[in-house]
Design a binder for these strands. Sequence first.
DNA 1: TATTGTTATACTCTATAACTATA
DNA 2: TATAGTTATAGAGTATAACAATA
Lengths: 138, 138
Amino acid sequence: MDDPLAHLPGYALRRAANATMAELAERLQPIGLRVIDASVLLLIGNRRDITSSRIGRMFDIQRANMVPLLARIEDAGLIARVPIDGKSQAVVLTPAGEAKRKEAETITARFEDELLARVPPAHRDHLLPALHALWRGP
Amino acid sequence: MDDPLAHLPGYALRRAANATMAELAERLQPIGLRVIDASVLLLIGNRRDITSSRIGRMFDIQRANMVPLLARIEDAGLIARVPIDGKSQAVVLTPAGEAKRKEAETITARFEDELLARVPPAHRDHLLPALHALWRGP
DNA sequence: TATTGTTATACTCTATAACTATA
DNA sequence: TATAGTTATAGAGTATAACAATA
């Protein structure tokens, strides 16, 4: 396609992220999860002290936008709320949520393995450190 | 923040892409461009034969979604349409568009340099090849 | 005073279907 | 028959402001 922007790392980064996320979305669709849903289930895991605000902070999602997100996952029966104190509530997995988390884990683990396998061996071990430098700083 | 998903390449890829694109958007805001606007101006360059459909194909944007995108850039006086035949029209830069393209080029070139500089030297030369393998295949 | 959870709202980005006109 | 350009629309994702209740 002769893309004159292909040599730009920021551009290639966005294209690679878009392509891989679209593929992961496809693989999660059969179990009824979006990418962000699977991320939330994996993040919660067996913790019983994680709040909506904290999930939002981890994923850089505004508190306000967590409301419909968690509501949808809750309506699917995958999470429940457990009061911590008068104003905070833990978000925890239901049994169905834990089962779904395991499915999501299988799919994403396989997907991440395949992603790495696509990177030529000479570059493979450099990908994650390079991405972390761009995302989280040095 | 102790992110249990940080070791996943796909997750790190998305986070790195989001962070860098947000930063580029900030840098382009002073000259009134979005990231996609700058990409379009850079892609057109001095070509006089590129169509809306072709830009869409290059960037994986649906034809239908190119309409409001180009309309906005056209309303800003940066591009014009030149008929190729009865059904196709070239999208070309106006003089103002060419001036804006130069500004965008300066900003993005500097930004891309800085991005690479953030990657530790040992990993730097591996980033682009690794991203290309994920995006465009082997 | 700061934080949690929430409502409401608006804007961007993306996906799909359908239509007209031309190659 | 395939492609270009367009309209309309719906679904996501994201950002901001505001509010009540609690720490």
